[in-house]
Design a protein around this nucleic acid. Structure first.
Lengths: 149, 149
DNA sequence: CCTTGACTTAAAGTTAACTTTAACTTCTAT
DNA sequence: ATAGAAGTTAAAGTTAACTTTAAGTCAAGG
């Protein structure tokens, strides 16, 4: 199956200009064209673009992704390097997930804080609660946010 | 307890220039200064900066965070609006976590893929595996990445 | 007193990842 | 045959969130 740039853009929910940009940056080394110069996207290009999206989501930049594409072009001799690359991405992702969980903890605390303030009609109620008055699961996170010199 | 801009920057692991930028953008409405004009950061500023960091992590931009600060300045009458804001951030975070999990699934698939390729010495081994030869937990994700027209 | 490091400002510069524009060509449908 | 949608390029523009620069002031130690 083949696709025009507009069709592929829709499949991936990106702008055609983004796909042209990726092509220009060398991220699509197997791109084919019609005689008249129009890009022909194949299912294999879809797969590459899915991986590009994945790598972008792990925090890699276009330049770094291009280096990965260069590894792909080296064939089987770069299998080790590519495995290492994905293991590193996995490690980065784990950090990102831990960070996001911390953010979620803080947001949950703030939801509790404003729910409590709403019931009381004033933020001074949650503000002045002692540690012993807090729900148990809110104590650790409040301590993290607050600084008492 | 009070801090200079450099001390606060170290506590938060950001550059002093970033704190000046936040101040200029109106994110630190309770900033005090010495007579000679030097910023005095208090523990309450630390807390605000922690919340700014949290909101940034949920994907909010500085402009939007400033609107939140404006709500804070309105006092108790904006409790509802602030609660709604944090509930929305929680919703956004849940989407982000789901996206990150999808990315992790793809990275895990690629780790398996290159481990298999490494053992075989060639990527054509995992490439040509039928669905029935894949580890069970890799099937769904490979189907998601692949497109067969 | 004097040096040195840290603080101040306004304004300009940086960076990544696209997007937009302009001028043009090609494909599709009637 | 022709209109209009969609494709092409190179080059310039956008945006956010800072950072850097330049020129100057302030604070602490010897």
């Amino acid at each position: 199956m083949t696709y025009t740039i507009g069709e592929m853009a829709k499949l991936l929910d990106v702008a055609p200009s983004a796909l042209r940009y990726y092509d220009k940056e060398g991220l699509l080394p197997f791109m084919e064209r019609t005689e008249s110069g129009i890009r022909i996207f194949k299912d294999s290009d879809y797969e590459i673009l899915k991986i590009i999206h994945c790598l972008k989501s792990t925090g890699m930049q276009i330049k770094e992704i291009k280096e990965f594409i260069n590894l792909v072009l080296q064939g089987d001799e770069s299998i080790d390097a590519r495995l290492e690359l994905f293991r590193k991405r996995k490690f980065e992702l784990e950090k990102q997930m831990a960070d996001l969980q911390e953010t979620m903890d803080t947001v949950n605390y703030k939801c509790w804080y404003y729910e409590t303030a709403k019931k009381a009609g004033t933020t001074s109620v949650p503000d002045n609660m002692g540690d012993d008055e807090l729900p148990e699961n809110m104590r650790k996170i409040r301590a993290k946010i607050r600084k008492q010199g």
